[in-house]
């Protein structure tokens, strides 16, 4: 018996069960993702870092090293400082608005009412409609002559035809407009996040709070909100990152105007680096996103770990 078992074992190849080894199989499965990230994120990123330290332009593709000169140029530019401030206003404005809309939307959609499923499906639309299409529709709504928003305001007697707001021309209103459009795009995502969070709370906890004497507001802000905070923060990180780096709405709706009033980092980097061909300064502008995003993500992730329940 012993001899037989030994002979069977001896015949097995060392590599017959090679895929049963976690190290081999894991590496194999992870490889595509890692190669993808390295090739399409890592390499362009390093390239951008190098461009930002060089004098590379489309007209003069030299890799001549200039140190931090590009960054100094950029910081000294008034347009850039305006852009940096705009980016923060745009990002936080649209996220806050989107979160508020999302919270209320989620609360409304939690109540049973006829047609709730259809409404739940429709509410996702802003998120899935191609951004170019949606922005064209918004452009029309904000139009100085044919604005449906102004038409409504005039019809309601809130403003008169002569002092009707000129949405995309007035600098403050133009910023408000891009914020509104971005919040409109973001809020279905926020609704989904809030709905997921709230429906995951055990009914017993909410009932306990009700019996313990908590009214609507206390239940929402002392029980529900803290309990869904981790998932909301994750959603917010996504929203902040996507908005901070976004240029499509600004590009399509205001083209950074009027007079750079709505220019944001992504847009400005694209303008300088691609449209004007000054790749070095464009890269430098874009890299300003990096530390901000980095800090943001670290802060948020630490917050989540502390909140873990």
């Amino acid at each position: 018996m012993v001899a037989l078992a030994e002979r069977l074992q001896a015949r097995r190849s060392r590599f017959e069960f090679v895929f049963d080894r976690p190290r081999v199989l894991g590496t194999l499965f992870l490889a595509p993702a890692i190669i993808y990230v390295l090739a399409l994120v890592g390499v362009p990123f390093l390239l951008a870092v190098y461009y930002s330290l060089s004098a590379y332009t489309v007209y003069n593709p030299s890799y001549h090293f200039v140190g931090l000169q590009n960054f100094i140029d950029v910081i000294n530019s008034g347009v850039f400082r305006r852009t940096l401030a705009n980016t923060f206003i745009f990002t936080f404005g649209s996220q806050i608005l989107g979160l508020i809309l999302g919270k209320f939307g989620a609360l409304l959609l939690l109540r049973p009412f006829p047609g709730r499923k259809i409404v739940r499906a429709l509410i996702i639309l802003p998120w899935v409609v191609p951004i170019a299409l949606a922005t064209v529709a918004w452009e029309w709504m904000f139009d100085s002559l044919y604005s449906v928003i102004n038409w409504t305001l005039i019809a309601l007697g809130i403003v008169t035809r002569t002092d009707a707001p000129n949405w995309l021309v007035d600098p403050g209103l133009a910023m408000l407009s891009v914020i509104v459009v971005n919040a409109w795009r973001f809020f279905p995502f926020a609704i989904v996040i809030f709905l997921a969070g709230i429906t995951a709370i055990p009914q017993d906890v909410i009932d306990a709070a009700t019996v313990d004497g908590a009214g609507f507001w206390r239940r929402n802000y002392q029980i529900i909100l803290p309990m869904i905070m981790p998932i909301v923060v994750v959603g917010l990180v996504f929203g902040l990152v996507f908005t901070f780096t976004d240029l499509s709405i600004v590009y399509l709706l205001t083209n950074g105007g009027p007079v750079n009033a709505t220019s944001v980092l992504g847009f400005e980097g694209f303008q300088v680096g691609i449209i004007s061909g000054d790749v070095a300064h464009g890269a430098a502008i874009s890299l300003f996103m990096l530390p901000v995003l980095f800090i943001l993500v670290i802060v948020m992730l630490r917050f989540i770990r502390r909140q873990e329940i």
């Binding site: 017993d204 009932d207 306990a208 019996v211 313990d212 908590a214 029980i223 309990m227």
Partner: peptide, 28 residues
């Protein structure tokens, strides 16, 4: 419910996970 002065204990207890025991008891 809050005007009835009744207390209820639930099957899964419904403790508030983000509060300490002290704050749980103090909540009502």
């Amino acid at each position: 419910p809050r005007a009835r002065g009744i207390a209820m204990m639930f099957q899964t207890y419904g403790l508030y996970p983000h509060y300490t025991v002290r704050d749980n008891i103090a909540f009502p």
